[in-house]
C-alpha cells in the first residue's frame, strides 16, 4: 500500500501550478467572459507546449502514455485557477483515445452533460451515448449558442449527423468515468481556491476593530469547508488510481469522488460567499468566477444525485 504521488508527479503538478498562477490569474478568466471564444488561448498553447495535454496520449502519437494518476493533480490545478479551457474533455477524455492531439481541443457531450462547452472552437465533438461513442468534426455539427451562468463557458446545443459509433459501449463507459473523474478533480481545486481566498480575506478584513477571522462563527464555517475538502481529495485520488488499473469497482469510486468533490465545492462556495459578505456578491470581485464554475461543474458529467444513486446501486 502506498497512497501518495511520486516526487516526479508532485513536481509536474507544481510546474503546472506555477504556469497557471502566472498565465491564468483571475484577470485572464475574467477576460474570457467577454472575449470572442471564452477561452485563454495563450494558456492553452503553453499547456500544449509543456505536454500537459498529452500526458495520457499514446507514445506513438507523441504522448507520454501515462495514467489518470499522473494527470489528476494537473486537473486539480486547472480547477484552482478556473482555467477557461476544455482540458478535461481534451486531455483526459479525447486525447488518450487518439481522437485529438497537439493543441486541438475536444468538446464532449453526453445525456448527463448535453451542452457542448466551447464547442464552436473544438476540433471534434465527442458524443457519449448508450450505444457507444461518436466522434464528429466540429464543422459537421449544428451548434446553437446558449448562455451559461459562467460567462467563460460557451455552451451550445449540438446536433450531430447520423454516424456510427467509433468506439464500443465499454469505451463509452470508460470515457464517461474519466470525464467525471476530471471534473471531480477540478471541483477539488475550485474548493481549495475558494477556501484559501476566503481565509486571506478573513485575515485582512476588519470589523468591530478586529480581523473578522478572529470570530468563531467565521472560523467554524471555514474549518468545516476545509474539513470537507480534506476528505473529498483522497476519494478523487483513489478513483484516479483504480481507473488506471481498470479496477472493476472504479466506476463506483469515481462516483464517490464526484459526490464528495461536488459537495465540498458547494460548501466552499456557500462559506466563501457568506464570509466575504457583500463584496463577494459583486462581480467586480473575483470570487464569482470560481463560484460559478463550481456551480456548473457540480452538475456536469452526472450531477451529485446521479452519482450518489450510482453508488447506491453498487452497495445497497
Amino acid at each position: 500500500m502506498r497512497f501518495a504521488f511520486t516526487d516526479e508527479q508532485l513536481e509536474l503538478a507544481a510546474a503546472v501550478r506555477d504556469l497557471l498562477a502566472k498565465e491564468c490569474p483571475p484577470d485572464v478568466v475574467r477576460a474570457a467572459w467577454s472575449n470572442a471564444d471564452g477561452r485563454a488561448n495563450q494558456v492553452w498553447s503553453a499547456l500544449a507546449e509543456m505536454g500537459a495535454l498529452a500526458v495520457m496520449s499514446d507514445e506513438a502519437r507523441g504522448g507520454f502514455g501515462m495514467t489518470e494518476v499522473d494527470l489528476v493533480l494537473l486537473l486539480e490545478e486547472s480547477g484552482r485557477c478556473a482555467l477557461p479551457e476544455p482540458i478535461v474533455d481534451t486531455a483526459l477524455v479525447a486525447a488518450p483515445e487518439g481522437w485529438v492531439d497537439g493543441d486541438a481541443s475536444a468538446c464532449v457531450i453526453s445525456p448527463e452533460s448535453p451542452f457542448g462547452v466551447w464547442a464552436d472552437t473544438a476540433t471534434v465533438i465527442v458524443s457519449i451515448a448508450a450505444d457507444g461513442v461518436r466522434v464528429v468534426p466540429r464543422s459537421e455539427a449544428g451548434l446553437t449558442a446558449r448562455d451559461s451562468v459562467d460567462g467563460a463557458r460557451r455552451l451550445f446545443s449540438v446536433e450531430l449527423p447520423e454516424v456510427a459509433p467509433v468506439a464500443p459501449v465499454a469505451a463509452a463507459a470508460r470515457v464517461f468515468r474519466r470525464g467525471a473523474l476530471g471534473t471531480a478533480a477540478q471541483l477539488v481545486g475550485l474548493a481549495d481556491r475558494m477556501v484559501s481566498m476566503t481565509v486571506e480575506y478573513a485575515r485582512e478584513r476588519e470589523q468591530f476593530g478586529v480581523k473578522i477571522g478572529t470570530f468563531q462563527a467565521v472560523k467554524h464555517h471555514l474549518a468545516n469547508a476545509r474539513t470537507a475538502l480534506e476528505f473529498a481529495r483522497p476519494l478523487v485520488y483513489r478513483a484516479a488510481a483504480t481507473m488506471s488499473t481498470d479496477d472493476p469497482d472504479a466506476a463506483t469510486h469515481v462516483s464517490m469522488a464526484k459526490v464528495r468533490a461536488g459537495d465540498a465545492a458547494a460548501q466552499a462556495s456557500r462559506v466563501a460567499l457568506q464570509c466575504h459578505g457583500a463584496i463577494g456578491y459583486t462581480t467586480e470581485y473575483d470570487l464569482h468566477l470560481f463560484m460559478k464554475r463550481a456551480w456548473a461543474l457540480e452538475r456536469a458529467w452526472g450531477d451529485t444525485s446521479w452519482h450518489r444513486r450510482a453508488v447506491g446501486r453498487a452497495i445497497l
Binding site: V199, R203, V210, T214, Q216, K219, H220, A223
Partner: peptide
C-alpha cells in the same frame, strides 16, 4: 477542534 483547524491548519488569527 474547529478553532484548532481554523488557527493551525488555515492560519486564521487567534484574536
Amino acid at each position: 477542534q474547529r478553532n484548532v483547524v481554523a488557527e493551525r491548519v488555515l492560519g486564521l488569527p487567534r484574536r
